[in-house]
């Protein structure tokens, strides 16, 4: 499969990338592991690719001013193996190590995955549960978009044209915070049929996010209300599962019907809550 012909520009800085995106039909190329397959199927036909892989400022993972900052160009493998992430945001490392396969993890990036916003991708649930902000840069400078405002629908985000994700910023969780990511994978693609990310803070506040279940990943406030600030017990887990995935449009495909997917979401929420109990 051969993509439609396009122009190619490799850039070294974010400013250069923003300037290069002036043409409406330009696309950013990071790891290329979502974009290139779509281009090969000709589902996507950009006239120009702006390759940001060489931008040094987009790499790296660090702690800065009370936040964990993950460069948008960090690969899934970078994050899965990072010491800081393993110690302070362990479910990011677990989730990253469950994405696709070794080859995909070696090239796919967190920024690319978030911008693509596949309804079955893992990162959206993780950034939602971690109260992350997506830092983006455009011709008017930088701004932060809360993860909860970022995903707007199937493959849709609140990114504007000419904006590029530069980092993912997560408040450093208080000592004693527990996290879990539980996923039922599509056996061939390893995309999530259902993925449930949970972050439980020492004060009992509990964030719950799902991916794979609906048009876009979402925070489940009904389920959160059941367990937040309360002891996690068999009863409260059962009650949270009962309250979960109500009032959302549930996806259905040849692999998992609406009913089955809904059931799986509740089962995987239970597993995640048991893991943070």
């Amino acid at each position: 499969m051969i993509p439609v012909s396009f122009d190619y520009q490799k850039v070294k800085t974010v400013d250069e990338a923003i300037a290069a995106l002036s043409n409406d039909n330009s696309k950013i190329l990071a790891g290329g592991h979502s974009l290139l397959p779509a281009m090969k199927l000709r589902l996507s036909q950009p006239s120009k690719l702006v390759d940001i892989a060489a931008i040094a400022s987009l790499k790296g993972i660090k702690e800065e001013d009370g936040e964990i900052v993950i460069g948008a160009g960090a690969t899934h493998a970078d994050i899965a193996g990072d010491k800081l992430i393993k110690s302070k945001l362990p479910f990011f490392a677990e989730g990253a190590s469950m994405i696709g396969d070794v080859q995909v993890r070696n090239h796919g990036t967190i920024g690319g995955s978030l911008a693509h916003a596949d309804p079955a991708a893992d990162w959206p649930a993780l950034v939602l549960a971690a109260d992350a902000a997506i830092e983006v840069q455009g011709s008017n400078g930088k701004r932060r978009i809360k993860a909860t405002d970022f995903f707007t629908g199937l493959f849709s985000t609140s990114l504007q044209d000419n904006e590029i994700i530069v980092a993912i910023r997560i408040p450093v969780p208080a000592q004693g915070t527990k996290t879990s990511y539980q996923k039922f994978s599509q056996p061939a693609s390893r995309f999530a049929i259902v993925g449930c990310a949970v972050m439980r803070f020492p004060d009992g506040k509990t964030n719950i996010a799902f991916t794979g279940v609906s048009d876009n990943a979402f925070r489940d406030s009904n389920a959160e209300a059941v367990v937040s600030g309360k002891v996690i017990s068999n009863d409260s887990i059962a009650a949270a599962a009962k309250a979960a995935v109500q009032s959302v449009n549930i996806l259905s495909d040849h692999y998992a019907s609406e009913e089955y997917r809904k059931h799986l979401a509740k089962v995987y929420l239970k597993k995640a809550l048991q893991a943070v109990a």
Binding site: Y8, K10, L29, G32, H33, L36, P37, D51, A53, A77, V102, Q103, V104, N106, H107
Partner: peptide, 15 residues
């Protein structure tokens, strides 16, 4: 040094 699916990378990316 990293395992890579060469059907999912452009030759220009390997520069």
């Amino acid at each position: 040094g990293k395992a890579t699916k060469s059907c999912t990378m452009l030759a220009v990316q390997a520069d």
